[in-house]
């Protein structure tokens, strides 16, 4: 074989390796195998970069999809593998003699969604969103190995914090947690950011009002110290303009605006989340701990 011919065919070699492998292969795995193969004489791709592999796989993935062969190449949570087309599922389930698939119940899915989007999340945080006790649901999800304990929070009582597992990603066909739809809006980072913004907004408004008041009734202001308490309270804050609106005017069809005005309300769990030390980065400290 000439060199040019072989270089065109990196894609073919990769495709063959993934098909013959018993488990999904990551780009790093593939590069290592190609490098190590040089020892047995197959030197052609010993020096390819991960970038070149990624490009070749992208082309291959496109091609397998286009050819409608009933299967195609995908990148899953643990690497590249072939999977069958979902439209063929009913026949495959019959051929493989599979029972009715076990699906997660709605209480489980809701709990799982909160853990997934807000991880690491404590039981109290999950319960404050769902409005019901979730201990038995958490236990069931742990048994199914869809979630795991990822550490303990720094809030009093040092409650466990939960996160999702590799099996979670595989069960839902996700590559990584960031691939969850709408993760930007529902993530804790976003909730915290909004809350901080609202708090700043609120504090600014408060101080402006205080200034205005002190100008008006300078002598009547009983004790300025009292007023300091308001903006410092560690409570969820919402945008002031929304508050007055809800109390006085009737907003035209705000339900339709539900998603667009999200950030006014994400502060709901803010009180817990902003408790000292209980932030998104807290989980990192606990990984070695059991």
């Amino acid at each position: 074989m000439s060199t040019t011919e072989i270089q065109v065919d990196l894609k073919r070699v990769l495709g063959a390796m993934i098909l013959a492998s018993n488990e999904p292969l990551s780009i790093r795995d593939l590069r290592k195998i190609l490098g190590d193969s040089a020892d047995s004489g197959a030197r052609e791709f010993a020096g390819v970069t991960e970038g070149a592999i990624r490009d070749a796989l992208a082309v291959l993935a496109e091609e397998t999809k286009d050819h409608a062969m009933g299967f195609y190449l995908v990148e899953g949570a643990s690497g590249f593998h072939y999977q069958t087309d979902a439209s063929c599922g009913p026949w495959l389930r019959h051929m493989l003699k599979l029972d009715k698939p076990s699906r997660l119940s709605r209480p489980s899915l809701e709990t799982l969604a909160i853990v997934a989007y807000r991880q690491p999340a404590t039981r109290a945080e999950i319960e404050s969103v769902r409005g019901v006790a979730v201990d038995h649901v958490l236990r069931a999800l742990m048994e199914m190995q869809l979630i795991r304990i990822v550490g303990r929070s720094d809030v009093p009582g040092r409650p466990f914090m939960y996160g999702t597992t590799q099996l979670f990603l595989e069960h839902f066909g996700l590559k990584k947690v960031d691939d969850l739809p709408g993760i930007e809006q529902l993530s804790r980072a976003e909730a915290d950011r909004i809350q901080d913004a609202e708090r700043a907004n609120r504090a600014a408004e408060e101080s402006a009002r205080r200034e205005a008041e002190s100008e008006l009734e300078l002598d009547l202001t009983p004790d300025p110290e009292d007023r300091e308490v308001g903006p410092l309270l560690d409570v969820p804050l919402e945008a002031p303009q929304m508050r007055s609106q809800s109390a006085t005017e009737r907003v035209g069809d705000p339900v339709a605006d539900e998603t667009t005005s999200d950030h006014e309300f994400s502060g709901e769990n803010g009180a817990d989340q902003s408790a000292p030390g209980d932030n998104a980065s807290a989980g990192d400290d606990f990984d070695d701990e059991k």
Partner: peptide
């Protein structure tokens, strides 16, 4: 996603 995934079978595992 779960409904979709239950009809998908991977060659590898």
């Amino acid at each position: 996603l779960q409904l979709h995934q239950e009809n998908v079978f991977a060659a590898a595992d």
